[in-house]
Amino acid sequence: MKDVSFGQYYPTQSFVHKMDARVKILLIIAYIVGVFLVASYHFLGFGACLLFVIIATIFSNVPFSKVLKSIKGILFIIIFSAIIQIFFNKSGKVIWWIITDEGLLNAGFIVARITLIVLGATLLTLTTSPVEIADGIESLMSPLKYIKFPVHEFALIMSIALRFIPTLLDEIDRIIKAQKARGADFESGNLFKRAKALVPVLIPLLISSFRRADELADAMDSRCYAGSKNRTRYKKMHLTYRDLLGFILTAGLITGVVFLNGFYVLLVI
């Protein structure tokens, strides 16, 4: 159960870690847009995105292996979408059996796209603690306050959810062990049987989550928590030269991608 930790915050000191969380979130969104901007089959654009990830990783002091591990978690999705593209794409020239050149290109394109997006997103979670991300999102969404959207509460819900993931994993581990000791079998049988075997785990988990939520609410109440009104912060976020550099690099990436889209066309002609 503890293996689900890919993309978990990697505590260290670095250029990227010290960047403003809000900026990092915006830049990652821009980066993802950049990945999507790469026009069909213009693989050089992906090269630019990869370069961006590599530079960002170097500046973040996070070992490359940590970043690459994130792909392991979505390997199934990657392989699945590649297979669908390879075997079910009917357009283009047939190379062998039912496999077409367009299918292969599409598969490569999709694999590159998913991988790059996940790498970028992982880099964000590796270098930004959950609390910072929640604070960042709250600050980014603050304009929505004017249309009476409960921004602070929304951010609070998010940070509580993130905070409780490890607690719930421990809890699941405990309940699974207890039910295994009573003869529960989670490893054998078909998909339906296995899904049914999870009922004795999910129900106690649900009940204890409600109990925990109640207790947490009481604990917050007894500390006079009252939401966003007049609340001050321990850590204030401000922009620094690092964020400016980040902006410049990302802007460079997007221009590069757009440029390479055109450039590739020129090369083909």
Binding site: R174, I175, K177, A178, R182, P200, V201
Partner: peptide
């Protein structure tokens, strides 16, 4: 286990 009542389902 500890607090076995939490495994009832």
């Amino acid at each position: 286990f500890q607090y076995p009542e939490y495994q009832l389902f």
